[in-house]
Design a protein around this nucleic acid. Sequence first.
DNA 1: ACACTTACTTACCGGTCGGTCAGTAAGCGA
DNA 2: TCGCTTACTGACCGACCGGTAAGTAAGTGT
Lengths: 197, 197
Amino acid sequence: MTHSEPALRSQILVIAQRKFIASGYHGLAMREIAEALGVSKAALYYHFKDKEELFLAVLLPYLDSMEGVLDDIAAQPGSSAEHIRRFVSHVLGQLAEERAIIRLGSQEMGQLSAASRKAFGKVYQEKFIGKLKAIVQAGMARGEFRQLDPEIVTWALLGMMYPYFYPAHTGNKALPEETIRIVTSIFLEGIAPPAAR
Amino acid sequence: MTHSEPALRSQILVIAQRKFIASGYHGLAMREIAEALGVSKAALYYHFKDKEELFLAVLLPYLDSMEGVLDDIAAQPGSSAEHIRRFVSHVLGQLAEERAIIRLGSQEMGQLSAASRKAFGKVYQEKFIGKLKAIVQAGMARGEFRQLDPEIVTWALLGMMYPYFYPAHTGNKALPEETIRIVTSIFLEGIAPPAAR
DNA sequence: ACACTTACTTACCGGTCGGTCAGTAAGCGA
DNA sequence: TCGCTTACTGACCGACCGGTAAGTAAGTGT
C-alpha cells in the first residue's frame, strides 16, 4: 500500500475524541492523550500543529459525515415527516460517544481562537444546521407542517435530542427505539397542521 | 444594618457567573475574576475556600429560586398545559445570562470532584428536574397529556429550550414572545392525547 | 487603651500547561 | 552506500494555574 495514513494519527483522533467528550477542551491536557497511547507528547505535535488543530480534526469529519447523511435523507422519496423520522433515528441510533461530538462542538466553540471559531461556525451552519433546516422548510412548503419560524422549529428538534448528547445521561432506562419513537412523535405531532387532526 | 453580607462577596458572584458562563469551569482563571474587580486574587479565597466552592455558589442559588418557581406554578389552579406554559414563559422570559446557568451546571458537572458532582447532581435532580417531571406526570394522570415515558417527555421539554441557554445563540432574530409561543405550542400539541384532536 | 476580628494585599509556592528543539533510528530511492 | 525523508523521543521552556502564608489597616467590643 502506498503511503497510507500513519497508524498513530488515527489512534490519536480516537483517543482525543473520547477524552475531549469526557473532559472538554480545557479539561483535557495533551499529556493525557500521549500517555494513553504510550507515546511522547511531542509525537502529537508531529501530526497536529497545535491543540486547536487536533480538536478541529475531531469535530470536522463528523460534520462531513452528517452532511452526507442529511443529503441522503433529503434526496430520498417519501414525506417530510419520514425524513425527520429518519434523521432522528440515525442520530439517536448511533453510539452515544459518536453523537456527543455535536454537543462538544457547540459547547466548546467559544474556547477557540476567533479564526477557528468563525471557520467552524460556518461549517457547522452549512453542513448541519442549514441542511436540517431545509428539510423542515420543505415540509412546511408542502403543507405537511405548520408554518412556523423554521429557525425556532429546527432548534426545537435538535434541542429535543440534546439530552442524549451527554454521555453522563445515564438515567435513560428507556430503550433507544422507545426514545426515538417518543421524540419523533412529540415533534411531528407538535408541528402537524390543524387539518391533520 | 447589622453585619450585612460583605459587598465584595456578591460582586464576586456576579462577575464569576458572567465569566463562568462565557468561559466554562476550566476556561476561567481566578486571576481574571480578581482583575475584573480590581482586587487581589487572595481576596477571592477569603470569601470562598476554593474555585469549586465559588462555582457551586454561582449554581446553587439559581436552583433554589427555580425550585420556588416550580412549586409556585404547581400550586396554582389551572390546567397542566397552563403550568407548562408558565414554566416555559418564565425560563425563556428571563435574561439569557440568567438561564444560561442551567446549561453551565449540566455542562461542567463532570469537571467537579466526585463529592461535589454527586451533591450538585442530587440538588439538580430534586429541585429542578424532579419538580418539572412531577408537573408533566400530573398532566398525564389527568388525561391532559398522552401517557408516554415521563422521563423522556421532561427531557424533551427541557431540550427544546436548551438552544436558548447558549448566549452565543445570536442568530435568534425572533422575539422572546414568539419563541415562547412556538416552543410551548410544539410541546403541548406534541403531547396532546388523540382525543383532543 | 488594648485585644480581637474583619477584610483584605503582597509575595510567593509547586505543579501543570501548551509548545519547541535537537537528536535519532528506520526506511527508501538513486 | 549515501543522502534525504518519515516518525518519532527526551529534555526542556516560559507562562500560567490554583492555592497559601504572612502581614496590615480599619474597625469593634470592653
